[in-house]
Structures are given as C-alpha cells and as structure tokens.
C-alpha cells in the first residue's frame, strides 16, 4: 500500500517536471517567435519614429529618477566599502579605479537592467496584458492594424534604446557618488582619484563592453516583458502573474547573460 503510494507520488512528481519543462521550452520558442515577428515588423515602426519616442519617454525618462538615485547610493557604498578595504593596504587612492571599474563593467549594466525590469518591464507587461484583456489588441487586428507592428515593436526598440542610456547614466552618477564620498568626505586626493581611474579604465574594453552588455540586457528585458504581456491570460489574475514572471525571468536572464557575456569579454 505504502509502496504503491510512493510510486504514484514519484510518477506524479516526474510528470510535473516533464510538464514544466515542456511548457518552458514551448514558451521559450513562442518568445523567440515573437522576437522574430517584432524584428520583421520593425521597418514600419522606424518610419513612424514618434511611436518609439513616445515609448522611450515611458520606459526611459520615467525610470530616470529611480536609476539615478540608486546609482548615487551604489556609488557611495562602493566608495565606502572600497575605502574600508583599500586603506588596509595603504592604497586608498585606488578607490577611483575600484568604483569606476565595478560600475562601468558590472554594476552599471546589471543593476540598471534589474531596476529596469522592476520599473519599466512590469509596466510594459501590465499594459500589454490589459490591452489584451480589454480586447484592444483584437480591436486593432480587426482594424487591419498589426498589434506587433503598432504596439510591440515600438516598445521593444524604445527599451533597446533606453537601456544603454540608463546604464551609462547609472555608471556616471555612481562614479560621482563615489567621488563625493571619497574626495570631500574621506579626503582622498582628487587628482589621484581621477588619474588612477583614467590609467586603468579602458575605453573599449571596459566602457564599450559595458554598453554592449546593457544593449543585450535591453533586448532581453524588453522582450521578456513584452512576451509575458502578450502571452498573459486575459484576466486580472493572469496579468498579475505575468507581471511577477516578468521580474523573475528578466532578473534570471540578466544575471545568466551577464555571466556569458563577461566570460566572452574577458577571453577576447
């Protein structure tokens, strides 16, 4: 009796795993398909660039405050922690290098992408999900207007444009935060702070690679948010779940992609 119950439990568990994997793969494929359709219908949306500009406003400009404030604090914390450790080795003027490299190479793109997923990504998912639930997308289809070209593609490109800009601003403001902490507060020499930074931060290998990362994150985060919204069941519960999934999936995707990109960039 117990044995058979165990067996049934095991089979049920395996079935659950199988179901989840199939669903996951199916969703991944559907996401790629949406990505492809979006790219295919991007021509029209570039001809009507004001659609993209409008979405850049909603994803980029509206995320500016949260990005800048977080960047400032992240920069100051980096400065504080860096100083605390570096002064043990008598090299506290290297604080500028530490703050700049950490921000430009990793924290700028990654933290921006995570914040973006939370701020703009969820907004996109909820908006698209609600448009679907209230039949706005259907209505568009019936008006012979492709929702992918009119709704999805502009938001996609807006995200891809906004993300690197936000990441660059994040790095810049973070470095300013580090500077404000290191130079006036702690008393590190301003000249040493900047010169060490300039000697060790490489334009192409550090700054440009960071920008490339944030472009990739922009593609991933925006596409995930759009797909979750487009794929959401047209109910209040479905949309709220999709919004949660956007944050979870985007965060995992950003961190995973970051590892892959970093390992490629350090090798080359």
């Amino acid at each position: 009796m117990i044995k058979s119950a165990l067996l049934i439990g095991l089979v049920r568990g395996l079935r659950g795993i199988g179901h989840k994997s199939i669903k996951g793969i199916w969703r991944f494929g559907a996401g790629i398909r949406l990505f492809w359709l979006t790219l295919m219908s991007s021509g029209e949306c570039f001809r009507r660039f004001h659609l993209i500009i409008r979405e850049v406003y909603f994803t980029g400009v509206m995320s500016l405050i949260i990005i800048l404030v977080s960047a400032f604090f992240v920069g100051m914390v980096l400065g504080l922690q860096g100083y605390h450790t570096l002064q043990k080795y008598g090299s506290s003027e290297a604080i500028g290098v530490l703050v700049a490299l950490a921000l430009v190479r990793e924290l700028g793109p990654v933290v921006t992408a995570l914040l973006f997923a939370g701020r703009a990504g969820t907004a996109i998912t909820a908006e698209i999900g609600l448009m679907k639930a209230t039949e706005q997308l259907s209505a568009m289809e019936m008006m012979a207007v492709s929702p992918i070209a009119r709704v999805i593609a502009p938001r996609f490109w807006a995200g891809v444009i906004a993300m690197p800009i936000l990441a660059i601003l994040f790095s810049m403001v973070g470095i300013l935060g580090g500077y404000l902490l290191a130079v006036p507060v702690i008393g590190v020499d301003a000249g040493a702070f900047w010169s060490q930074m300039q000697a060790n931060v490489d334009w192409r290998h550090d700054i440009l690679n960071g920008v490339i990362k944030s472009v990739v994150f922009g593609v991933a985060c925006t596409m995930i948010a759009l797909f979750e919204g487009y794929d959401a069941p047209p109910t209040a519960e479905g949309v709220s779940r999709a919004t949660t999934r956007t944050v979870v999936t985007s965060s995992l995707a950003v961190l995973g992609l970051d590892f892959i990109l970093t390992s490629f960039m350090l090798n080359v």
Binding site: L130, T134, E135, Q136, M142, M143
Partner: peptide
C-alpha cells in the same frame, strides 16, 4: 469592416 467589441475596447 468595422467592429464594436463587447466593452468598446477603446485604446486607453
């Protein structure tokens, strides 16, 4: 064709 959806489906 023109179509009126059940709840209007106006673009919010």
């Amino acid at each position: 064709m023109g179509m009126l959806f059940q709840h209007g489906a106006l673009f919010t």
